[in-house]
């Protein structure tokens, strides 16, 4: 299978750098998959679950937050605020945070707080979903 160079950067570091066979991101209207030789595109990434297959055929999952994916002359770059592997997520913590976010959305102190809480909720939901679907039954 053809491969392409893939880079996934999160705000506080490099998440993945290497060759990949495919990468699939959560987009506005469902999943968006990119294979080698994809046309030049920029796609918005929604909070959710991203997965990619490395050149050795290994499949990896990660929960990601807002960002974008760009294809330029076969080079693929994913920029997301945060990205986490299932083993990096603490289920207890994610659940607690989810609860907190819901609580804060109910309180709705201001528009800004609301957006912050909403973004947090979507992040935590993505984390929990990743654990449920692809965690190693922790």
């Amino acid at each position: 299978m053809n491969t392409f160079p893939l880079r996934i950067y999160e705000s506080d570091g490099i998440f993945f750098e290497g060759d990949a066979q495919s990468v699939t991101i959560p987009a506005e209207d469902g999943e968006y998959a990119v294979l080698a030789a994809h046309e030049n595109t920029v796609v918005a990434v929604e909070p959710g679950i991203l997965h990619y297959v490395t050149d050795e055929g290994e499949l990896f999952y990660a929960s990601v937050s807002n960002g974008m994916l760009r294809v330029e002359d076969g080079d693929v770059l994913v920029l997301v605020e945060t990205a986490e592997r299932p083993e990096e997520i603490d289920e207890e913590r994610a659940r607690r945070k989810e609860e907190e976010a819901r609580e804060e959305m109910r309180a709705q102190k201001s528009r800004r707080d609301f957006y912050l809480a909403e973004a947090m909720l979507r992040r935590e939901l993505a984390r929990l979903k990743l654990l449920k679907d692809h965690g190693n039954n922790l």
Binding site: Y32, T41, V42, N66
Partner: peptide
Amino acid sequence: EYRFEPSATVLLERMLPS
């Protein structure tokens, strides 16, 4: 030249805070 999904404006406004 790029194809934008959903649109350039949405993408820009999403990435600007970053």
